[in-house]
Design a protein around this nucleic acid. Structure first.
Lengths: 259, 259
DNA sequence: CGCGATTTTGAAAGATCTCAACATCTGTGG
DNA sequence: CCACAGATGTTGAGATCTTTCAAAATCGCG
């Protein structure tokens, strides 16, 4: 086991961008209105959230939270992609979650962040200070209930990923990741063969899949060569036959939920 | 990748043992009173739980839940050890959680079980029918709050395990498992070098760690040879120097919480 | 257009798995 | 109480997959 993963390479600059213009401010027009922590709120509750929220933006590569930080806030991802990761002292890193629109960061009742969260693309967060949010949790059951749902969904996703990390081959891992990203970035109403963008570098994919970046690259090349996927440049992928890709991922037809 | 993991080998017999004698019935004397889903309940709430609970026991190896089963119940583990696992069509299996006293099985709002749960040792569960339990969740915030805490703790544990599965070497994996089991089975007040019992076969350990049983066996032998652990028979282990074992596990001193 | 970051590809090393044989444990029946 | 059978665990040798190290190609951006 070597030290070659040590490349954290985050910019030392820790400051967030200024808040977005107020045009994004209305909860009722929020892009994540229907899947975030607020999705089950009635208008009264929504108003309470509206009163204590504010936006922050992060540039690609910027750290959002470091493990060990005091967590003074919780937040929902409004747009962009962020990663949750854990790492060992020698630099080996494992991404343990991929946060996209509607996903929640932070946890009530926890002072200190248990993982690193990093902006992968440009990210906008809808933030709440932790204390007022916790108070709100006590009084608005619809937020508490949704938060439990979100936590349980993430637990399912984490456990599905454990099967991948522990038992799948490199090729199955890559296919599984592509299925995940295709599903997550699919816009309802468009064709299932619509090309999508890989938001991650090969190194990040490796960190998510428990592989080296070279193995990631080789397996993507192999899937291309086998005609399972088609690539336009390095980041745009299209999947002519999603069922075939799912088969390559070793997915039980059963397990298509989650994530 | 072969089919050699296909050995499910559960007894066809699916029936639970009869309920325990009523001497175990009082919540106030329950061994998991202080860490289960009911731990934050006041006596009124406890009485409500008491009214709808009942016990079931399972013999070692018996399935408790199959993936895809309709879940009519939720439950807490009162005693014994159970495993949560996922598997692929070809039989490859990944254990995704180890349930011990106080841990919770099932989830409100979910009809169908997403994983297999199996008794590892003799297990006693404190069960609730799902519907009444869900109703109770709406009315007793202390249960709902504790359930969220439990879910978030499990999420942390799952993510810590993802680092293990994705990035640790076989030796580190074994050492990590031993640290986990030692911590979980440690009786407060006893010496930290007190021997403990491995509740899992080599095959189960392999399924938890993403290894084959042969690799598990070899690495345990290696740790013995290195003097990191001492064994009395196949299942009893003692750890003369826990810090040394933790170092072998590649654990950040930071990350000793969780589980 | 040029430079640093990212990606691809090759060849060799290393870790874990596979297959196989044998040893040990556990519980049962004689 | 012992012997036996099946389950569980250990060990060896070779195969396989992924990583490592290295070099070259390509991308993306100023």
């Amino acid at each position: 086991m070597s030290n070659r993963h040590i490349t954290h390479s985050f910019p030392a600059d820790f400051s967030a961008e200024p808040a977005l213009p107020s045009t994004v401010g209305r909860c009722s027009e929020c892009p994540i209105r229907h899947n975030a922590v607020c999705s089950q709120c009635e208008s009264t509750e929504l108003q309470q959230l509206e009163n204590i929220k504010y936006y922050r933006s992060f540039a690609p590569g910027q750290p959002i939270v470091w493990r060990g930080d005091r967590m003074e806030h919780v937040a929902s991802v409004v747009s962009g992609v962020a990663s949750i990761s854990q790492s060992m002292e020698d630099g080996r890193t494992q991404m343990v979650g991929l946060l996209m629109g509607g996903d929640f960061i932070g946890r009530p009742g926890r002072e200190v962040a248990p993982y690193d969260v990093t902006a992968v693309s440009a990210v906008t967060l809808c933030c709440f200070r932790r204390r007022p949010f916790e108070t709100l949790l006590m009084t608005t059951p619809n937020v508490a209930r949704r938060l439990l749902e979100i936590a349980l969904d993430e637990l399912d996703a984490a456990r599905e990923w454990m099967l991948l990390l522990g038992r799948k081959t490199a090729r199955e891992k890559i296919a599984s990741l592509l299925v995940l990203i295709a599903r997550r970035s699919h816009v309802p109403g468009t064709a299932r063969t619509t090309p999508f963008e890989l938001p991650l570098t090969r190194e990040m994919m490796g960190n998510y899949l428990g592989l080296t970046l070279e193995t990631v690259s080789r397996q993507i090349s192999a899937l291309k060569a086998a005609g399972v996927i088609e690539a336009d440049g390095n980041r745009a992928i299209s999947v002519p036959d999603m069922a075939r890709l799912r088969a390559e991922a070793g997915e039980d037809d059963f397990a298509s939920g989650g994530h």
